[in-house]
Write a protein that binds this DNA or RNA. Sequence first.
DNA 1: ATTTTAAATGCGACTGAGTTGCGTTTGTGA
DNA 2: TCACAAACGCAACTCAGTCGCATTTAAAAT
Lengths: 134, 134
Amino acid sequence: MEYVIGDDLLQQQGLKRTKLRMALLDCFLNTKHALSYPDIKQMLGEGVDRSTLYRNLAAFEEADIIHRIYDQSGVAKYAFGKVHDHGRDHAHFVCEQCETVYCMEKATTVDINVPKGFKTKTIQTIIRGICSDC
Amino acid sequence: MEYVIGDDLLQQQGLKRTKLRMALLDCFLNTKHALSYPDIKQMLGEGVDRSTLYRNLAAFEEADIIHRIYDQSGVAKYAFGKVHDHGRDHAHFVCEQCETVYCMEKATTVDINVPKGFKTKTIQTIIRGICSDC
DNA sequence: ATTTTAAATGCGACTGAGTTGCGTTTGTGA
DNA sequence: TCACAAACGCAACTCAGTCGCATTTAAAAT
Ligand SMILES: [Mn+2]
Ligand SMILES: [Mn+2]
Ligand SMILES: [Zn+2]
Ligand SMILES: [Zn+2]
């Protein structure tokens, strides 16, 4: 039962178990792709407060329950799992048709050589294409 | 003289040679890194109109005089040159210290294998690290 | 040089994302 | 059950970017 794992996740991060947080957690646990603020709002209903939702997204991110993704659409998206879980700089796939964003757990990026004097720390990759649902 | 090349660029794209456009072109010709709206505004002075500036950025992009870059900071940045000039999906380097964004003309060889059913079209890479000035 | 006209500008209003301060409510542990 | 920090709800705000519309202007035609 998801309920239990959600409960655990909050508890072990020292986050209070509030109604919104449980619902928010459910959103992520029941979705395989990344969610934007509007996506989440739609799932949770109009009632949710914007500030509170954003603050919780920040809290979840801080606690490594979710990670934030910028798909160059201008709006941030969030997906379940700490970044490190899927590999340090795992790639993200953006479907050109449906705009859905997926975490590419095992896709690998290799061989970047930057000019002299530049030091690479992390590499973020965004793959655009057509997803398996389209 | 930059003036001439700028003049040419506008002319050959069917864009009228206005004061703002010449100044804007100068910004890009005299800078080796990507510029955000605030960056440009600062260079051009407070007088420039927001809408007009954005419209011209869009026009320049359309005309392949500049290309737009999303560095996951939330604000778009622009750099001289059509995308194709530096290679279809050339990488961008974001300095973690000074936040400067550079086009990495020759940097990438990327090898991505996506799950079954996903079809890759383009790959955008953002490298974070420390630039040669920092 | 003057007229013409479409393109470009300037301004104001607007949307949407995200943030912050503050007073009230609520989860949790003592 | 009580106390208190954490979380919430709300309003106000910033910042990026867009749009409609009336005015101006670059450039081509006369
Ligand atoms: Mn991911
Ligand atoms: Mn570039
Ligand atoms: Zn799709
Ligand atoms: Zn730097």
